[in-house]
Design a protein around this nucleic acid. Structure first.
Length: 115
DNA sequence: CCCTGGGCAATTA
DNA sequence: GTAATTGCCCAGG
């Protein structure tokens, strides 16, 4: 059975994974997708955030594996993301967040942050 | 140590 | 076939 049989199920799992990220911590698309059981579908996670961004969905806690913001600097979106992260105690320097703030420790191999 | 550029692999709508 | 809020590699300064 292909896990993609239900894109809806995949999106639901991704949303749950994002909501599982506590304030003051961030995660990457890859980690979110893996956490949702969709290892290797980081892109799907990004699309879910972009298409299904809801107030209850902490999209601002999802960044690139490098720690950079998902949106390019200069955009209202990036500004909002940096602003929210800083409000939670996550300093953003040059549109980038320190790896120590990543819930996965900065390694997709060591993710399993499902604690 | 930090940053920039370009390219490639895989998946979904 | 195209585009997308990806991830990782290499090289240079």
């Amino acid at each position: 059975m292909s896990a993609e049989s239900g894109s809806l199920a995949a999106r639901t799992a991704i949303r749950a994974a994002i909501r599982a990220v506590p304030a003051g911590r961030v995660s990457s698309y890859g980690a979110i997708a893996a956490r949702a059981g969709l290892r290797g579908r980081a892109r799907l996670a990004g699309r879910v955030l972009r298409e299904g961004a809801t107030p209850a969905l902490p999209w601002h806690r999802v960044l690139h594996s490098d720690g950079r913001l998902a949106a390019p600097p200069g955009t209202a979106l990036a500004r909002e993301q940096m602003r929210r992260l800083a409000a939670e105690g996550v300093p953003v320097r040059k549109g980038r967040v320190a790896r120590e703030y990543f819930i996965d420790g900065g390694d997709l191999d060591a993710l399993l942050w499902r604690g």
